[in-house]
């Protein structure tokens, strides 16, 4: 079982690095069936007892607790921030990594979270469709940054991407990255709208080379959202980039990950694809709203030994 301690860091030590200019033609094609089979393998790992508890706490600590709805209110966002800081009373749990909200809710989150260490991520760039011009998208980003966002989740222009205007997509990401300043930039590919694995790989490479700090699967508004095969494919894009340049990029699967078991399988996949250096919320996030509650239920089950009920933990 040598690959459990596998680290691509070790591989890199023996390799000479050089800057490689981005060329879309260098993007490899993907063996989709192989990808699906490989991703399915991670689901066969069994994680129990102490390792399970550690894994669940790590997963909780990697969550971007998210509310991105038209009906979001100040009260709802505050409530979610309290939950982010203290997921469940009396359990000594880690906080989540960040809350993820719309730009106009950043100030509310900031005021509630204060110095708790929980970061504020804001979607921007005409989320979720991205159907606007660069000027508006820059303004949107600026609004979130000015309000105090630590991280920006932008969407790429999928229409332009399908039209083959890769330069436009690349330049747009680069411009937003510049507008982000110190804030970290997550680039949402919306893989459910890209169609094929090859397209996802292309978009991943564009985003990474254009300056993304994280690449993210989905907005959560389109189905399918995050799946294990598509996440694996993006992790491999991150690995290839790292092996060429020595630069780490983060990964954020988002949407549809709602149970603890799946979250643990994602962590297994992360460990076995990128290695332990990525196993923290600095480099990996779950975009989720319901996952936190399921993790709490499972941790309570581990603690008390009996199956738990959602009736006894807060809904949001």
């Amino acid at each position: 079982m040598h690959y459990y301690n596998y680290s691509i860091f070790d591989f890199l030590k023996s390799k000479e690095l050089k800057e490689i200019p981005f060329n879309i033609k260098n993007t490899p094609t993907i063996d989709q069936l192989g990808l699906i089979e490989r991703a399915a393998k991670f689901r066969t790992r069994s994680i129990k007892k102490e390792a399970k508890i550690q894994g669940l706490k790590l997963a909780l600590n990697m969550i971007d607790l998210t509310t991105l709805e038209g009906k979001d209110t100040v009260g709802k966002v505050r409530q979610m921030c309290y939950k982010a800081m203290n997921p469940h009373e009396g359990m000594n749990l880690p906080t989540v990594a960040a809350v993820c909200v719309y730009p106009n809710m950043v100030a509310v989150a900031k005021e509630t979270l204060r110095d708790s260490g929980v970061k504020i991520a804001s979607v921007a760039t005409a989320f979720p469709s991205g159907m606007s011009n660069l000027k508006v998208k820059l303004e949107d980003t600026k609004m979130a940054i000015d309000a105090g966002a630590d991280e920006i989740d932008m969407v790429i222009s999928r229409g332009k991407f399908h039209q083959g205007e890769y330069n436009y997509v690349y330049d747009e990401i680069a411009s937003i990255k510049e507008a982000c300043g110190k804030a970290r930039l997550k680039v949402i590919l919306e893989t459910g709208e890209l169609g094929t694995a090859d397209q996802v790989r292309k978009a991943s490479d564009i985003a990474i080379y254009a300056g993304a700090d994280f690449i993210k699967t989905s907005t959560g508004k389109i189905s399918p959202a995050a799946t294990m095969p598509v996440t694996l494919l993006m992790l491999e894009a991150i690995r290839d980039y790292y092996l060429k340049t020595g630069k780490m990029i983060g990964m954020k699967p988002a949407g549809g990950i709602s149970d603890s078991k799946t979250a643990l399988h994602y962590l297994v996949m992360l460990q076995e694809t990128l290695g332990k250096e990525w196993m923290s919320n600095q480099w990996f996030r779950f975009g989720a709203s319901r996952l936190a509650n399921d993790i709490i239920l499972q941790l309570l089950k581990q603690e008390k030994g009996i199956y738990q009920s959602g009736d006894y933990i807060s809904k949001d």
Partner: peptide
């Protein structure tokens, strides 16, 4: 036992 203890 599991039927009787399950909180849900």
């Amino acid at each position: 036992e599991h039927f009787a203890t399950h909180m849900d």
